[in-house]
Design a binder for these strands. Structure first.
Lengths: 213, 213
DNA sequence: CTCGATCTGGAAGGGGTCTTCCGGTTCACC
DNA sequence: GGTGAACCGGAAGACCCCTTCCAGATCGAG
């Protein structure tokens, strides 16, 4: 019978953890496009060790952010279960829009589809399912305008992410104001017609990473 | 006495114009971060000729987009003079937000400050002055909410630019929907309080190119 | 303590962009 | 049309990033 994967050496496991810790810091501060060597440097290991543990950048991204994505989906679930759906909706939107300010890398991950990374995509989908529930309840409760679509969420993420991206503190303040505008636009009082959304498949397709041009 | 700058050779002038034409195309399609060699290739000249005419990328950007920036300021002036200020406001916002869709490079230029490039910045300022007039008139006419700030304009540009950026057609549709949300949020009916803006100086400072980190 | 398997870090190799240099060519003045 | 200056394009050099390789260090089982 095959011996199965043996336990890694203690120092190897330690280095792997150091790399993950460093990735959380570096991706959080500078985004997921930062040079891999910077992650290795911050972790205090050689570049080869990083490459051995995470051959592709996506591997490191997946390992670094799968916990964050789970927390995101959990937050959506909590909001969907909130007894005050409209307040929960506003709170969730604020939470989502402030993510790129705290963690630039995760902000990018949230608005990027990684079709090959199951650990991220399954949790992202769970988050979306919970958000759909939240939207339904917020409409029923009367706070949210009826023509709001759950697929407006990536739009809102992209919009506020575009403001936050530059990473200056002044823009963080400005992003809050944008959230204010958007939430007021989402309120049930607004009844003007809205341009339609593209089919969700196309929308999410457009967000996939590294289009093989 | 000094002879002054002599007239350039005809072929040199022709090549310079070819480079500008190519830059309009390439920057428009792929943004202002495209490799310089691609501009030279499209223009049918060598890389050295490009470097000689425009030593820095900013030089080419300035020469390529100063006309666009003038057109932008003219459009703002026309809107400010429109007899229906609120309609003009909506039209101007739509115009501005759709720019990155038609011309990706100019979309980036509009949300980036080039402190050293007078040709761009003076026209940008003129556009802002006209927009301030437009905002005042739209408020007086009653269509625009009183707490809208002219300095919300870069916010709106960044927000819709963030959606458009990826360059997929599905996102263009989505961006129109975002504009719809934002315009309804700008309408006078909305009276909820908004988070404040940062001081304009800091806001525009945050948009400056290539922060000397 | 010994020894082999595992792991490590630096260095070499390959791709990409920007800048600089230089022999050859083209223009325009006379 | 001849001549000198202006101009051209490709190639070389420098830098940055990622990937691969390998001689040596380290761990831990026995």
């Amino acid at each position: 019978m095959t011996p199965g994967p043996r336990r890694p050496r203690a120092d190897a496991a330690r280095n792997r953890q150091r790399l993950l810790d460093a990735a959380v810091e570096v991706f959080g501060e500078s985004g997921i496009d930062v040079p891999m060597s910077e992650v290795a440097r911050r972790a205090g290991v050689g570049i080869a060790t990083l490459a051995r543990n995470f051959p592709a950048r996506e591997d490191l991204i997946a390992a670094t952010f799968s916990a964050s994505m789970t927390a995101y989906a959990d937050t959506a679930a909590a909001a969907a279960a909130d007894p005050e759906p409209w307040r929960a909706f506003c709170g969730f939107i604020e939470y989502v829009c402030r993510i790129p300010r705290r963690d630039r890398g995760f902000g990018q991950v949230l608005t990027t589809m990684f079709p090959g990374v199951e650990a991220l995509e399954s949790e992202r989908q769970r988050g979306l399912r919970e958000f759909i529930r939240l939207v339904r309840r917020a409409k029923e409760a009367g706070g949210l305008r009826p023509d709001f679509s759950p697929h407006d969420l990536p739009l809102i993420m992209l919009a506020t992410g575009g403001v936050t991206r530059a990473g200056a503190p002044a823009l963080a303040v400005a992003a809050d104001r944008l959230i204010g505008y958007l939430l007021q636009a989402c309120a049930a009082g607004n009844t003007g017609p809205l341009p339609g959304l593209p089919p969700p498949r196309e929308l999410y397709r457009a967000l996939e990473i590294s289009r093989p041009g």
